[in-house]
Design a protein around this nucleic acid. Structure first.
Lengths: 155, 155
DNA sequence: GGTCAATGGTTATTGACAATAACTATATCT
DNA sequence: AGATATAGTTATTGTCAATAACCATTGACC
């Protein structure tokens, strides 16, 4: 089921005044982000796969053998959040935790074959989703937007 | 207390690979938005005032006599979310609900004097907060960014 | 070598938040 | 009048993530 109109902040109603909100970058970021988030589950065909969970899998895939603590740091998560997120993918046989021989407190995280396949599929769906979100922008504008956003969040 | 490093997604660690994430607009939006959100409470000097609650007050101030249902639609909220949000401000004597004479099911929402003062103060703090978030951008870039974001979220 | 602090990870507890559903009251349509 | 729709609130539920407490292992230091 598609997000209903109540949850769809795309419906910007210009017959009302938004006060100072329309001149705040933070407000614009939130609206755009919520819009993205709201459609994400449908786009990837599985409501359970949130942007966060997807990003987990992506980072694990890009950094085989990563520690959980590192993963958490990369994505700005708490330790428990990383644990839970990985539990989710482990239940789906997409990642495995291998005890590190040298430091037996920690695990190395790896994609399973199933995980590789799932990630490949997800990547495509997510890329398409992302393109749909930004169809209203030209390639140049898109590049510009990402560059500016990156400047903000990598401070 | 400032947000701790675990919650601060500004710490973008380029010694790891982010896979496809860095080329997704949605990812960039989320990171920037979370960064904004994380500092908001501190910026306005009151942890209880979230961006959502602030936006409520802003919209009420800009549209005196608004119905709750309209308010909800403007901000993409559910009816209960609007009710709760207004309860918050009503407890603080910042808004009042006046029964509409013509349609006694609905209320008109108005700022109280207290609400006007609070909003005025908030506006300043929020504007400063927003400027801090984007100090890394020139005025021109900022304008560009807002324009592009607006195109996205107003479909 | 033995204690003690620090680190990786999990579990337990809690709180915030928002969504749906159900309910009350009022309005509208026929 | 009776059926239906609408404004608003309350109740219930589920998700999410954060903190704190906990276990196991490591490493530093005396």
């Amino acid at each position: 089921m598609a997000a209903n109109s109540r949850n769809d902040p795309r419906l910007f109603d210009s017959s009302y005044s938004y006060g100072q909100l329309t001149s705040l970058t933070g407000f614009a970021l939130r609206r755009a982000s919520l819009l993205d988030f709201g459609k994400f589950g449908d786009s990837v065909g599985d409501r359970a796969i949130t942007p966060l969970r997807y990003s987990l899998l992506e980072v694990v895939g890009a950094n085989p053998g990563l520690q959980q603590v590192e993963l958490a740091k990369i994505l700005g998560l708490s330790k428990p959040a990383a644990t839970l997120g990985l539990d989710f993918w482990e239940k789906r046989n997409c990642i495995s935790r291998r005890k590190d021989r040298d430091d037996r407190r920690s695990y190395g995280i790896y994609l399973t074959e199933q995980g590789e396949a799932t990630l490949a599929q997800l990547r495509d769906n997510v890329r398409q989703h992302d393109e749909r979100l930004t169809t209203c922008l030209s390639d140049e504008e898109l590049l510009q937007l990402r560059t500016l956003l990156r400047r903000i969040y990598s401070g």
